[in-house]
């Protein structure tokens, strides 16, 4: 990934003439519950409200429910109880396509996401499924790849890419669909420090609504204005990033460590 220039990947306004009424939040989660077949409740009553353009970090220990919450945001999971509204549309079996048009999901393991034989084919996958013609899809592809600094990788096979390159291409694949909301699951995992820095720069440059589940509290601090702390499937704390991430006691209670809080080896 090259260092990004001025942001030229902007979200498209809501599709098909559905104008979002002013004041409707981008994401509105209310009393969300979810239970997995083999375990205790994964989410037991989460409330969350995110405005358009906000960048929010979801943090928590392993098993706190971050991924589960994220997967509700684009309908990979449906609520067992409670509700999820994306730009005013309630998430349900009939609104999946609508929701997925607005929410772009970047998976934790880029290998799960890059399944086409070449980078260009993969980034074009989303637009083609949206009904665009081949030329239009390739146009979007080129723009998206340029936006993440991966234009030179267009004809490579995904298995030949490094971790950082795969992450960039995965993000491009989602951007090419012009969503208004970006959801990223542990985006900095597996990246080397340089790749991570570039990722942070890229994420900061976007104007989409961003929801980022991460263990990387430094990234959360740099990219997100707001932080939500999950613990045992519930919202333990929410607030401004600097406040939450500066509260060492709170973080420790929730099974986290404050960023750069460690003692060096002797």
């Amino acid at each position: 990934m090259n260092a990004p220039q001025a942001p030229h990947i902007a979200p498209e306004p809501a599709n098909r003439g559905r104008r979002r009424a002013a004041g409707v939040p981008a994401i509105d989660v209310h009393a969300l519950c979810h239970v997995y077949a083999e375990g205790p409740a994964a989410l037991s009553g989460v409330d969350l409200c995110i405005e358009a353009g906000e960048a929010v970090a979801i943090v928590g220990a392993n098993g706190a429910g971050k991924s589960t919450l994220l997967q509700h945001l684009n309908g990979l999971l449906l609520p067992a109880a409670g509700s999820v509204h994306i730009e005013g549309i309630e998430l349900g079996p009939r609104t999946l396509a609508e929701v997925r048009r607005r929410v772009g999901y970047v998976f934790q393991d880029a290998d799960d996401q890059l399944f086409m034989p070449t980078v260009r084919d993969d980034v074009a996958f989303g637009p083609l499924n949206q009904g665009l013609s081949l030329e239009e899809a390739h146009g979007r592809t080129d723009t998206a790849l340029a936006g993440v600094g991966a234009a030179h990788l267009a004809s490579r096979a995904p298995y030949r890419l490094s971790g950082g390159e795969k992450r960039a291409v995965a993000i491009a694949g989602v951007l090419a669909m012009r969503p208004s909301i970006l959801v990223l699951d542990e985006p900095s995992s597996g990246l080397d420090p340089l790749g991570r820095e570039r990722l942070i720069g890229l994420l900061r440059s976007f104007t989409h609504t961003r929801v980022i589940a991460t263990h990387d509290l430094d990234l959360a601090l740099q990219v997100c204005a707001r932080v939500v702390v999950l613990q045992h499937g519930q919202c333990a704390a929410q607030g401004a990033a600097a406040e939450i991430l500066g509260d060492g006691a709170l973080l420790r209670r929730c099974g986290l460590a404050a960023p750069s809080d460690q003692e060096p080896a002797r």
């Binding site: 997925r100 999901y105 799960d112 996958f125 899809a137």
Partner: peptide, 24 residues
């Protein structure tokens, strides 16, 4: 497990059962 995640990734980008073999 990877197949399940792959399926989710495909669904998230609009997969309807066929991969576009878009190569002229």
């Amino acid at each position: 497990e990877r197949a399940t995640r792959l399926h989710q990734a495909m669904l998230a980008r609009g997969f309807t059962g066929q991969l576009p073999l878009a190569r002229p």
